[in-house]
Every structure is written in structure tokens, then in C-alpha cells.
């Protein structure tokens, strides 16, 4: 039975590669074919799981190098802030979004406002559109997960390029940092945090699970003082919805700005033209 013999030869060949697979020492292509075999070979599947389980213990032997404590503390702080923002999406009340007259410090806005976007009503209107985006997003993530399992290089390349940009960006820490959690007006589909270091005028924005926008559209980040939106940056999340923006921008340390994200035409707008996808305000 040639078929059986062939299948068995294949099995033996892949069997021998499982150790290398467990420690990720295969090329993408090799890994892909090994995983294809493993998917329909119970014995190899069990063996690969066992190998991975114990091979992961090798990490305990990672060379111990001194960690930059400030760096580690910064990551911890950002994680906690992101996690808190992630689980409290409905803290943004309509009251917070309505600016009081005393707050209006900068009246240099054109009279013709395209959208009266800083209102609770506008936020409510965006919920439906956002829900649609989120379900689309889920599909994308699932397909990305599948691709990931096959270690398709596109995601890796995107990640790599993103990190390159990120590496050039400085981040922030210290007692002068204000944390602004941004939330979407619906139950936690997306979330973001802005860190404002009032001592160094450094602003760092981190968002996750952002839906992919339509072609020709871009995300735009705004700082709103009183009723005056100031564009901070246009940005695009990576394939997994992660984005980080870091800029230096002086602002009165006592200011209580709002931070908002909108979906704008490519290149961005001078004033927001759509309802914000996420908003947040400096508290206390």
C-alpha cells in the first residue's frame, strides 16, 4: 500500500521536526507545513504540545540582565491605566462632554462648525456605526489569528515597521504625568489612554483594538480646550489595531483638556468632521 507508506514517511519526517517547531527554529514555510501535518495527525499533535509545554521552561534560564527600573515601572503604569480604561468604558458621562461657558478660553473657531460633535447626542449617534465596525473588526482579528497560527509574515512585517517607528518615540513617566482614559460610547470595544507629562510637555497616546477604517480614511487625534479642538496627529493602527502616538506639545499644566479621536478623510482635517469615536478628559 503505497499510500500508507507515503503517509508514514511523511509522518516520520515531520515527527523529527517537532522539536525544532517547539522552539520556533523552523522557517515560516517549514513551520507552516509542520502545522498542516500536525493538524491531522493526532500523535504528532500530542507530541508537539508536550514538547512546547516543557520547552517553554527554557525561559527560566534567560540570561538575567539588570532591568531598567524606570522603564519597567513605566510599562506597569501604562498597563494598569490601559486596563482600567478598558474596563470602565461608560465613565464618560454627557455632563463631562458638555463644556461650560467658563471653559471657553479660545474662541478662534470658524463660525461654521461642520458637526457639533462635542455633545452626548452626537456620541449616541455614533454607537450604531461603531457596533458595525466592531463586528467587522472581530472578523478581521479572527482571520489574523488564523494567519498568525501559520506565521504569515505580513503581520510580522507590519509589527516590525510599527515598532521601528515606536522605537524612535519617547515615552513618559514620573509624578507629573496625567493619565487620560479615553472611552468609546459603547461597551468596551475599543479603548485608549493618553499620558500627559506636564513637566516635559510629552504626550503619549496608546490605543488598542481599533477598527480598520475605510480606504482613504484616517484616525485623527484631538485636544479640546474649551470648545476649541486642536489637531494633535493623524495616525493609523497596525493590522492588530494597536497604535501609539507620541508628541511634544506645551500646554498650561493646569488646563483640563479633553482628548478625542475621530475618523477623518486621509491626511486629516483642520476641524473634526465626524462624531468622536472615543473621548476622555483629564480628571481631578
Amino acid at each position: 500500500m503505497a499510500d500508507l507508506h507515503g503517509a508514514n514517511g511523511e509522518h516520520e519526517m515531520f515527527r523529527e521536526a517537532l522539536g525544532a517547531a517547539a522552539i520556533d527554529a523552523l522557517s515560516d514555510e517549514e513551520m507552516k507545513s509542520v502545522l498542516e501535518h500536525v493538524a491531522h495527525c493526532e500523535s504528532c499533535s500530542a507530541e508537539l504540545s508536550a514538547l512546547r509545554r516543557y520547552a517553554s521552561q527554557l525561559s527560566y534560564a534567560a540570561p538575567i540582565e539588570p532591568i531598567d527600573q524606570a522603564r519597567s515601572d513605566r510599562v506597569r503604569k501604562q498597563l494598569i491605566a490601559r486596563a482600567k480604561a478598558d474596563r470602565q468604558p461608560l465613565e464618560i458621562s454627557s455632563a463631562k462632554l458638555t463644556t461650560s461657558k467658563e471653559d471657553i478660553v479660545q474662541p478662534q473657531i470658524p463660525k461654521r462648525r461642520v458637526v457639533n460633535w462635542v455633545t452626548a447626542a452626537a456620541l449616541a449617534a455614533s454607537v450604531v456605526a461603531l457596533a458595525a465596525l466592531v463586528s467587522e473588526r472581530r472578523g478581521l482579528l479572527e482571520s489574523l489569528d488564523r494567519e498568525r497560527a501559520g506565521r504569515v509574515s505580513e503581520v510580522a512585517a507590519l509589527r516590525g515597521e510599527l515598532s521601528e517607528r515606536d522605537a524612535a518615540l519617547s515615552t513618559i513617566t514620573g509624578p507629573s504625568v496625567k493619565v487620560i482614559a479615553l472611552a468609546a460610547p459603547t461597551a468596551r470595544p475599543v479603548g485608549a489612554v493618553m499620558f500627559w507629562d506636564r513637566a516635559s510637555d510629552q504626550w503619549t497616546f496608546i490605543a488598542h483594538d481599533l477598527p480598520r477604517l475605510e480606504l482613504g480614511r484616517t484616525y485623527q487625534l484631538w485636544l479640546v480646550l474649551g470648545t476649541s479642538p486642536r489637531s494633535i496627529a493623524v495616525f493609523a493602527p497596525d493590522a492588530l489595531g494597536y497604535a501609539r502616538v507620541s508628541i511634544r506639545m506645551p500646554l498650561d499644566p493646569n488646563a483640563r483638556p479633553q482628548v478625542a479621536v475621530t475618523d477623518e478623510p486621509g491626511g486629516g482635517s483642520t476641524l473634526p468632521t465626524t462624531n468622536p469615536i472615543m473621548v476622555g478628559q483629564v480628571s481631578g
Partner: peptide, 27 residues
């Protein structure tokens, strides 16, 4: 993180990138 940081720094040799990876891991 005391163990993950060195592991990732060792692989990437770039502390900024390692910081991102550690943050994404816990995230």
C-alpha cells in the same frame, strides 16, 4: 516581568522594542 524583560531584551537587543513586547504580552 523581571524574567520576561531580560528574555525579550536578549532576543531583540533593543530595549525600546522589548518594552513594547513586554507591554503587549501583559496586555
Amino acid at each position: 516581568s523581571p524574567l520576561l524583560f531580560p528574555l525579550v531584551v536578549h532576543l531583540l537587543t533593543d530595549p525600546d522594542e522589548a518594552e513594547d513586547v513586554v507591554q503587549e504580552t501583559f496586555w
